[in-house]
Deep mutational scan, measured.
Amino acid sequence: SISSRVKSKRIQLGLNQAELAQKVGTTQQSIEQLENGKTKRPRFLPELASALGVSVDWLLN
């Protein structure tokens, strides 16, 4: 799922939720909701993929 991929990649990069949120241009709460499965397809998906160094396709599939 996107939530597990985001969380595992974030941890692999040594980032906390607030640091990832800053790179993406969103809030820590938005990252938390995404990782908890409350958000399925965030509006900041391209920025998120870029910050994590992955493709949008990788996040979604």
Rank of each mutant, 00 (worst) to 15 (best):
residue 54 V to R: 01
residue 52 L to C: 03
residue 50 S to G: 11
residue 31 I to T: 01
residue 60 L to H: 06
residue 7 K to L: 05
residue 6 V to S: 07
residue 57 D to P: 04
residue 58 W to E: 07
residue 2 I to P: 04
residue 51 A to G: 04
residue 27 T to Q: 06
residue 46 P to V: 14
residue 53 G to D: 09
residue 60 L to Q: 10
residue 13 L to Y: 03
residue 49 A to P: 00
residue 26 T to R: 06
residue 9 K to N: 03
residue 11 I to G: 07
residue 13 L to G: 04
residue 17 Q to H: 10
residue 3 S to A: 14
residue 50 S to N: 14
residue 19 E to C: 06
residue 1 S to F: 09
residue 49 A to M: 03
residue 13 L to Q: 08
residue 4 S to N: 12
residue 10 R to Q: 02
residue 42 P to A: 09
residue 43 R to M: 13
residue 14 G to K: 05
residue 12 Q to T: 07
residue 22 Q to P: 02
residue 51 A to Y: 05
residue 41 R to F: 15
residue 11 I to Q: 11
residue 19 E to D: 15
residue 27 T to I: 06
residue 14 G to Q: 07
residue 39 T to C: 15
residue 21 A to K: 02
residue 41 R to A: 12
residue 47 E to C: 09
residue 33 Q to H: 13
residue 18 A to L: 14
residue 58 W to F: 08
residue 20 L to G: 02
residue 18 A to Y: 13
residue 33 Q to I: 08
residue 3 S to F: 02
residue 34 L to S: 01
residue 33 Q to R: 14
residue 44 F to W: 14
residue 11 I to C: 10
residue 20 L to M: 04
residue 5 R to F: 04
residue 15 L to S: 05
residue 12 Q to L: 10
residue 11 I to M: 12
residue 11 I to V: 11
residue 52 L to Y: 00
residue 45 L to A: 07
residue 52 L to I: 05
residue 36 N to R: 11
residue 46 P to G: 11
residue 32 E to M: 14
residue 52 L to V: 02
residue 57 D to M: 07
residue 35 E to F: 00
residue 25 G to W: 00
residue 42 P to W: 10
residue 58 W to N: 04
residue 47 E to Q: 14
residue 1 S to E: 11
residue 41 R to S: 14
residue 53 G to Y: 03
residue 49 A to R: 00
residue 5 R to Y: 02
residue 27 T to P: 06
residue 8 S to Q: 14
residue 47 E to W: 04
residue 25 G to I: 03
residue 37 G to L: 04
residue 30 S to Y: 15
residue 28 Q to W: 08
residue 51 A to M: 06
residue 34 L to M: 07
residue 40 K to F: 13
residue 52 L to P: 01
residue 47 E to D: 10
residue 29 Q to T: 11
residue 46 P to N: 14
residue 44 F to P: 02
residue 31 I to E: 00
residue 25 G to R: 06
residue 57 D to K: 08
residue 53 G to E: 09
residue 49 A to S: 06
residue 24 V to P: 00
residue 52 L to Q: 01
residue 41 R to L: 15
residue 30 S to G: 10
residue 58 W to A: 04
residue 38 K to S: 14
residue 43 R to K: 15
residue 34 L to Y: 05
residue 44 F to K: 07
residue 54 V to D: 11
residue 17 Q to G: 06
residue 18 A to R: 15
residue 7 K to M: 05
residue 20 L to N: 01
residue 41 R to N: 15
residue 16 N to T: 15
residue 33 Q to E: 15
residue 2 I to D: 03
residue 54 V to G: 01
residue 47 E to R: 11
residue 10 R to W: 00
residue 5 R to L: 10
residue 43 R to F: 11
residue 52 L to R: 00
residue 40 K to S: 15
residue 38 K to G: 12
residue 19 E to H: 05
residue 26 T to A: 09
residue 22 Q to C: 10
residue 49 A to E: 01
residue 39 T to F: 11
residue 33 Q to Y: 11
residue 26 T to P: 01
residue 31 I to A: 02
residue 34 L to T: 05
residue 26 T to L: 09
residue 42 P to L: 10
residue 12 Q to R: 09
residue 60 L to D: 08
residue 37 G to W: 03
residue 23 K to S: 08
residue 7 K to R: 14
residue 56 V to W: 07
residue 52 L to M: 06
residue 45 L to T: 04
residue 45 L to G: 04
residue 48 L to A: 01
residue 5 R to T: 05
residue 7 K to Y: 05
residue 45 L to E: 02
residue 49 A to W: 00
residue 10 R to S: 04
residue 8 S to T: 12
residue 50 S to M: 12
residue 10 R to A: 02
residue 30 S to A: 15
residue 56 V to I: 13
residue 2 I to Y: 01
residue 14 G to R: 03
residue 11 I to R: 08
residue 31 I to C: 04
residue 20 L to T: 02
residue 20 L to S: 01
residue 60 L to I: 14
residue 5 R to P: 03
residue 26 T to Y: 03
residue 50 S to C: 11
residue 44 F to L: 06
residue 20 L to K: 01
residue 54 V to M: 05
residue 39 T to K: 10
residue 50 S to P: 04
residue 16 N to L: 08
residue 48 L to Y: 02
residue 9 K to V: 12
residue 4 S to P: 04
residue 58 W to V: 04
residue 60 L to Y: 09
residue 18 A to T: 12
residue 60 L to F: 08
residue 49 A to D: 01
residue 4 S to T: 13
residue 55 S to D: 15
residue 5 R to C: 06
residue 40 K to Y: 12
residue 11 I to L: 14
residue 49 A to T: 04
residue 24 V to D: 01
residue 29 Q to W: 10
residue 51 A to V: 12
residue 10 R to K: 01
residue 38 K to A: 14
residue 48 L to N: 00
